[in-house]
C-alpha cells in the first residue's frame, strides 16, 4: 500500500502537481535525515544534505523506475550525496588555503526539543563510534542497522558487489567492537551490559 501511494504521488508530481511531492517529503523526511545525520555527524550539515537529496530526487523524478521502491531510490541519492560531501570535506581539510573546519562536537548545534533523544549518551556514543569509520564502511552499517537492508540491496544502492558489502560490514563491526572496548563501561546502556 505504501509503495502504491508513493507511485501515485510520484505520478501526480510528474503530471505537474508539486504538492504531491510534499507528501513524499513528509513521509521520508525522517529516513533521509537519519541517514544524512548518521553519515555526517552534524545536524546542520545533515539537514542541508537531506534537503539537497530531496531536491535532486524532485529534479530527476522522471528517471525514477516506478517498479522499484521509492524509498530505496531516495536513500541511494542521499547516500551518494553524503559520500560526495565527505570527500569534499576531506579535500577542504587537505587544502592549506582553507581554514580547518570545526570539529562536529564544537559546531553550533543548538539542541531543539526533537533532539532530546539524540543527545542521550547512547546516541552520542554511536555517533562517536561511527565517526571513526571510513565513509563506505559507515554507509554499510547505517543501511544495514537502521534500514534493515540486505547485503544485495545495499550493494545495489551503492553500486558495488554483495561480497564487498559483506566485507565492509565485517570490518566495520570489528573496528566498532574495538572502539567500544576502549570506551568506559558507563557509556553503555545498562540494559546491554552483561548481555
Amino acid at each position: 500500500m505504501s509503495q502504491e501511494n508513493d507511485v501515485l504521488w510520484v505520478q501526480q508530481t510528474l503530471a505537474g502537481d508539486p504538492q504531491a511531492f510534499g507528501e513524499l517529503v513528509q513521509r521520508y523526511e525522517r529516513d533521509v535525515f537519519n541517514l544524512t545525520y548518521r553519515m555526517l555527524n552534524n545536524r546542520g550539515e545533515a539537514e542541508d544534505a537531506a534537503q539537497e537529496a530531496f531536491l535532486r530526487a524532485y529534479s530527476n523524478l522522471d528517471r525514477y523506475d516506478q517498479n522499484r521502491s521509492f524509498k530505496t531510490w531516495l536513500l541511494s541519492i542521499a547516500s551518494n550525496h553524503c559520500i560526495d560531501r565527505i570527500r569534499r570535506r576531506r579535500l577542504t581539510w587537505l587544502s592549506l588555503e582553507e581554514p580547518l573546519p570545526p570539529h562536529p562536537a564544537l559546531t553550533s548545534d543548538i539542541p531543539g526539543p526533537e533532539e532530546a533523544t539524540l543527545s542521550n549518551e547512547k546516541s552520542m556514543l554511536v555517533q562517536e563510534l561511527l565517526d571513526e569509520l571510513p565513509a563506505d564502511y559507515r554507509m554499510a552499517v547505517v543501511l544495514r542497522y537502521w534500514y534493515d537492508y540486505s547485503y544485495a540491496e545495499i550493494a545495489d544502492m551503492l553500486d558495488t558487489t554483495e561480497s564487498a558489502i559483506k566485507s565492509r560490514l565485517f570490518r566495520a563491526r570489528q573496528a566498532l567492537a574495538k572502539e567500544l572496548e576502549a570506551k568506559p563501561v558507563s557509556s553503555l546502556n545498562p540494559a546491554m551490559e552483561g548481555s
Binding site: 508539486p18 504538492q19 511531492f21 510534499g22 517529503v25 513528509q26 523526511e29 525522517r30 529516513d31 533521509v32 535525515f33 537519519n34 545525520y37 548518521r38 545536524r43 545533515a46 539537514e47 537531506a50 534537503q51 530531496f54 531536491l55 524532485y58 531543539g112 526539543p113 526533537e114 533532539e115 533523544t117 539524540l118 547512547k122 546516541s123 556514543l125 554511536v126 563510534l129 552499517v141 542497522y145 537502521w146 563491526r173 570489528q174 566498532l176 567492537a177 574495538k178 567500544l180 572496548e181 553503555l188 546502556n189 546491554m192 548481555s195
Partner: peptide, 30 residues
C-alpha cells in the same frame, strides 16, 4: 564485544528530522 556493538546499533533510534523540514524543502522547490 561484537554482540554489544550489534545490540547498541540495533537499539539506537532513528534521528528525527528538524521541525518544519518538509515546509522548507517545499519552499525551496517553489
Amino acid at each position: 564485544h561484537l554482540r554489544q556493538t550489534d545490540e547498541l546499533l540495533r537499539t539506537t533510534p532513528m534521528a528525527e528530522a528538524p521541525v518544519g523540514f518538509t515546509d522548507r524543502v517545499m519552499a525551496m522547490i517553489a
